[in-house]
């Protein structure tokens, strides 16, 4: 069954994200592949001495003390279909949080994120892999995690395995894999989702030189095909190579935004 055109899973839920029911208008007319982020705020609780145990709750009956830590403080940005946008910034600047909001893993505290089209997030390679199951079985589970139907996985199975270069090991339990093999298989499934929007978070350092080159080529090919890419990385040359535009996040706010070369240069020469 799946959705229209054999696309089930994530396609069906694409669109509204963010604060409950707030975003219907935001991405309504936008074309498939658009990411629209408006005034996004996200906070974490920074616990001081987190009470997780019954005794403490009953004995002290005080609430856990925490501070709100605002990882994102009003980020607004828009990525047009087919565009590749990089997000750079120091550690703790909110890059990963931004990506997680776009991927719907966390809900924004405030503001809206709307994504049109099918999303594939390279946040975690090999999500749902079980060590005791074979590579083959895990490809199906991981594919389902990423929103593919079983039929889609079956159709692309040979391609996925071929890309990972693990033909020989595909029927062995994943626990016998080296960490490189594990990542290669995970990466391979993720790039075969055929998404409209690809979210990438620092995962290109997979496998050896040769495999990395292959991954880069694959992402370039997806870009050429018109897939929207949101790319988070510390690897500035790579960001410049992949992205048309770069957003510099600094402590949860957009500090600069513009052509890759300019922003990367500005960021590289920053005074902390």
């Amino acid at each position: 069954m799946g959705g229209a055109g054999g696309r089930g899973g994530q396609n069906a839920m694409a669109g509204v994200c963010g604060a409950v029911g707030g975003a219907e208008g935001a991405g309504g007319g936008a074309a498939v592949g658009t990411i629209d982020i408006r005034d996004l705020w996200e906070h974490y609780r920074l616990y001081h001495d987190r009470t997780h145990s019954l005794k403490e709750v009953l004995v002290r009956f005080r609430r856990a003390r925490y501070e709100n830590l605002w990882a994102l403080q009003g980020v607004t940005m828009r990525v047009e279909p087919g565009e590749a946008v990089g997000v750079i910034g120091a550690n703790g600047s909110g890059k990963s949080t931004l990506l997680k909001c776009v991927a719907r893993v966390i809900e924004p505290s405030r503001g809206t994120v709307s994504v049109r089209g099918r999303v594939s997030a390279l946040l975690e390679l090999g999500a749902g892999f079980h060590p005791d199951l074979t590579g083959r079985e895990n490809v199906f589970i991981n594919g389902a995690m990423l929103g593919m139907t079983r039929r889609e996985v079956r159709a692309r199975f040979d391609e996925i395995v071929g890309f990972s270069e693990l033909e020989q090991f595909i029927d062995s339990p994943v626990r016998t894999y080296s960490s490189g093999m594990y990542m290669r298989l995970g990466f391979s499934v993720a790039v075969h989702v055929d998404p409209d929007v690809l979210l990438v978070d620092e995962v290109l350092a997979v496998g050896d030189e040769q495999f990395q080159a292959k991954c880069r080529a694959r992402i370039a090919a997806m870009k050429a095909r018109g897939v929207t890419i949101l790319f988070v990385s510390h690897d500035l040359p790579r960001v410049q190579e992949v992205c048309d535009r770069v957003v510099w996040l600094d402590r949860g706010v957009v500090r600069a935004e513009g052509a890759s070369a300019e922003v990367v240069q500005e960021y590289a020469g920053r005074s902390e």
Binding site: G2, G9, A12, M13, D132, L133, E137, I141, A144, R150
Partner: peptide
């Protein structure tokens, strides 16, 4: 519930995973 329905393939994949892991080996 509608969204859950669109994720039925994942639900089933996890059930199969659980069963396979339980009885494997």
């Amino acid at each position: 519930l509608r969204e859950l329905y669109s994720f039925r393939e994942l639900l089933w994949a996890l059930v199969v995973r659980e069963l396979k892991v339980k009885y494997k080996n």
